[in-house]
Amino acid sequence: MLSSWRKMGPQARREALEGYLCLAPWAIGFVVFTAMPLLVSIWLGFTQWTITQPPKWVGVDNYTRMFTADPLFWQSLKVTVQYVLISLPLRLVLGLGLALLLNLKVPGMNFYRTVFYIPAVISGVAVALMWMWLLQPDTGVINTLLSYAGVEGPGWFWDRNWALPSVALMSVWKVGGGAIIYLAGLQNIPPHLYEAAQIDGSNRWQRFWRITLPLLTPTIFFQLVIELIESFKVFTEAFVITQGGPLKATYFYLLYFYEEAFRNFNMGYASALALVLTLVILATTVFIYNTSDRWVYYET
């Protein structure tokens, strides 16, 4: 690097320097606020630390306990994976469906796009409280409407079998954010492909299946990775509404992490929990990435 620097002319050096200066704010921020805390957290995972006392090195004890003697670790991981499996396909499919609707050429579309995007920017706590009211078993709007149709609504968040699906259902509220990304992808598809297909006599379904979907796969891939990470990080809903209950049916991984870190001040164990979640997300993402060449189509 030093030799290439020496070979540079004054103009090139100045440009390089300016480039590094422009990068510096992000680079410093990344090192100070992301990389260093991450490294410290990895180290803390091998300690016992209650904040008010100095950390004590315990080797792999935290991980041994986690994998062999901690039923709450397995319960929270199980619940979180179940949530991911329910909510992720739901959000991907509904987000795409909404984007297709928002891509129609009808009057007032900008208004609709704005309306559907608004939930994505509303505070998670406010949304959780609103859903708590909507899904209240006796007086909530949803069960009241169901009762008009002669259906006895479930106990939603307060029923051990329905609590997790309720939180997953609630996550659909935010599909507007993903739909905007899909919409950008849809609008990048060249119109002449549709025109050519139409001339060849294709119907709507064929155009969607043969043109839209393949050309949208890069966007779907992006959405899949982002939504997957978001799903693993589910927390607010359980923290505000269910506190992990009933019967630990919504005891998500991050809720367990939060309780260990900020209620019990068991920072060493919490750091170990955080690292394991990071590795789970990383492994899943790498798996998806490695399969992407089989189903993601990039137009050259």
Partner: peptide, 19 residues
């Protein structure tokens, strides 16, 4: 106390839910 009760909380839920 908090740690122990977290492990034992299911009894509370089961009674409250009438299960």
């Amino acid at each position: 106390k908090g740690t122990v009760l977290r492990a034992a909380n299911d009894a509370w839920d089961l009674v409250m839910l009438g299960e």
